[in-house]
């Protein structure tokens, strides 16, 4: 049984049909890539899964429970976290304070250690930001903000994390760091669904790839199979 099951999701904005009946699965313990040209509906799909946008029709199942239409808070409490294309951190809080913000209150998933400074510092050390622990997050560089946001989401110990362009807008060294962090966290049992344009990053990291084009899923398979899929090549290279 997949950890996340998306079935026939449709969403439109005015006259634009952003998602047209998308269906795919994310297996527990996997790193799954969600790729596609600009405007194919990847971020809208993320927003639907995480409750920031409600679909017009279709089904999203997480841990076999239906979650579409629920609030972002409820979905996060269930153990489904996400990052954003442009990192959204709390700029006027210190890094340690940022790490203490996420909460899964009211569930059995928030042990008291989540609230401790030691816990926050462990995660900052994990992403290499320990020396900036008391710095205001707004003073960080773009790449550092991506790392901080990654740590913020992971600090709540989610089962599934949706990463929106983790390698976007950062230098090659930081891309390597990010890939290493994802691999290591995945080894600890966290499942990832990754939207990314950097094909080298996706193909080397992901166990499974879903391809979207014009609001539809056009291919779904292993990285090798996806790279030789004519529909995918056509979508990326065009006529």
């Amino acid at each position: 049984m997949p950890l996340l099951h998306v079935e026939r999701i449709a969403k439109s904005f005015g006259g634009i049909q952003a998602l047209r009946g998308c269906t795919f699965d994310v297996d527990q313990g996997s790193v799954t890539g969600l790729i596609g040209p600009n405007g194919s509906g990847k971020t809208t799909m993320f927003n639907v899964i995480t409750g920031y946008t409600h679909p017009e029709s279709g089904l999203v199942k997480y841990h076999d429970a239906t979650i579409q239409g629920q609030s972002p808070r409820t979905i996060f409490e269930r153990g489904l976290g996400r990052t954003f294309q442009a990192p959204r951190i709390f700029g006027r809080l210190s890094l340690v304070e940022n790490l203490k913000v996420p909460t899964r209150q009211g569930t059995s998933h928030e042990p008291s250690r989540h609230r401790s400074t030691e816990w926050a510092e462990e995660w900052l050390a994990f992403v290499g930001l320990a020396q900036h622990r008391q710095t205001m997050a707004g003073a960080l560089s773009y790449g550092q903000r991506k790392l901080l946001e990654f740590a913020i989401v992971l600090a709540a110990e989610p089962d599934l994390v949706l990463l929106d362009e983790p390698a976007g807008g950062v230098n090659p060294s930081m891309i390597e760091t990010m890939a290493h962090l994802i691999t290591e966290t995945n080894g600890r049992g966290v499942t990832f669904l990754v939207v990314e344009h950097n094909m080298g990053f996706v193909m080397s990291l992901c166990h499974h790839v879903v391809v979207m084009h014009q609001g539809q899923v056009i291919a779904d398979g292993s990285p090798d199979a996806i790279q030789s899929n004519p529909a995918v090549l056509d979508a990326y290279l065009g006529d």
Binding site: R73, F76, E77, F90, L93, K100, P102, T103, R104, R115
Partner: peptide
């Protein structure tokens, strides 16, 4: 307190705070 931390998080980015489990 944790209440204050969450209020400050709301000040910085309310939607993000909501998406991190805060009862805004």
């Amino acid at each position: 307190s944790r209440l204050g931390l969450h209020l400050l998080a709301i000040r910085d980015d309310e939607d993000r705070a909501l998406g991190l489990g805060i009862k805004t």
